[in-house]
């Protein structure tokens, strides 16, 4: 009786582990097929001319320079806007906000914001930044929109990292007569900085891949020159890719694949840096 039950359980165990392996492989195989396909299609197209070329009607001479510069501009501005606001909000909610009904409400809403479709942020950005603030379809308007999009992620990451700082560290600082701000600035933030940075980078690598909100704000597919100021019109890699894929000539499909490789490299590199920083900080600070 017991042995049959055991055998039965062991069978279930086997079945589940096989199911787990298959499930894991499905994701992995699809990713490999996708990346392989893209690389086969586009890798031969990547050369110096492709990286530094301006957009063109002819696929053979079209390059991604303007879109790449646009992406870099947007990335930097988005980081500069979202980092201080997101971290400050996270610190406030975790350290200063009274744990009452209001903070509960804020907390729930911030989590909800993280799940709002990005195109909605685009509409918000169009109305507030492009129209009311009269920034037009500029890099600044686009960056502010993306900053809004990733703020919830940064706030949540900041709060989680701060929560992980042991209270004994704060106690020690307070007991020596430190003010709240001194304790946060000198103890809490340095101890949680690795986690905060990781969150910010992961949020930014999400922003890099966004096309929808920027299209709504008015980013263009065809920009003849690389942007020089935050008020210039711009394009970004995902929009360029989207535009190329919708063209009939096969040359543009190749271009799109090549641009996807570049975008993937940027994203993977950012995630790599995030993982590196996280490991480095985890090793450095042990309690």
């Amino acid at each position: 009786m017991t042995s049959r039950k055991n055998r039965n359980n062991r069978l279930k165990d086997k079945i589940f582990s096989v199911w787990g392996i298959i499930s894991t492989l499905i994701g992995l195989i699809l990713l490999v097929i996708f990346i392989g396909d893209i690389i086969i299609e586009g890798i031969h197209r990547i050369d110096w001319d492709f990286l530094t070329g301006l957009p063109s009607r002819k696929p053979e001479i079209a390059g991604i320079f303007t879109a790449m510069m646009g992406t870099i501009w947007v990335l930097l501005l988005t980081a500069m806007i979202s980092f201080p606001i997101g971290v400050a909000a996270g610190v406030y909610l975790e350290e200063y906000g009274k744990k009452g009904r209001l903070s509960k409400l804020l907390e729930i809403n911030i989590s909800n914001l993280a799940g709002v479709p990005s195109i909605i942020y685009g509409l918000l950005g169009l109305e507030i930044f492009a129209r009311i603030m009269n920034l037009g379809s500029s890099i600044l308007a686009g960056s502010m929109t993306l900053a809004l999009l990733i703020l919830p992620i940064i706030i949540v990451a900041t709060r989680e990292s701060i929560k992980a700082v042991p209270s004994s560290l704060k106690d020690a600082s307070f007991a020596l007569g430190a003010t709240k701000w001194q304790t946060i600035y000198l103890q809490v933030l340095p101890a949680s900085f690795g986690g905060i940075l990781t969150g910010v980078i992961l949020a930014l690598s999400r922003a890099v891949g966004e096309a929808a909100p920027l299209i709504v704000v008015g980013a263009l597919a065809y920009v003849p020159f690389a942007p020089k100021t935050p008020m210039d019109e711009f394009s970004v890699l995902p929009i360029q890719i989207f535009n190329w894929i919708s063209r009939p000539q096969h040359g543009f499909i190749t271009n799109a694949a090549a641009a996807i490789i570049i975008l993937l490299v940027i994203t993977f590199a950012m995630n790599g840096v995030a993982i590196y920083l996280r490991n480095k900080w985890q090793k450095k600070i042990k309690w």
Binding site: P166, S168, L169, D171, A172, S173, F174, A175, L176, G177, A178, T179, Q187, P190, A191, K284, I285, W287
Partner: peptide, 19 residues
């Protein structure tokens, strides 16, 4: 309160040096 804590110091159960 900061002055009070300078005058009245505290040592905790678990050693908690800063990193």
């Amino acid at each position: 309160i900061e002055q009070l804590r300078k005058d009245v110091g505290m040592v905790f159960q678990k050693p908690n040096p800063f990193p």
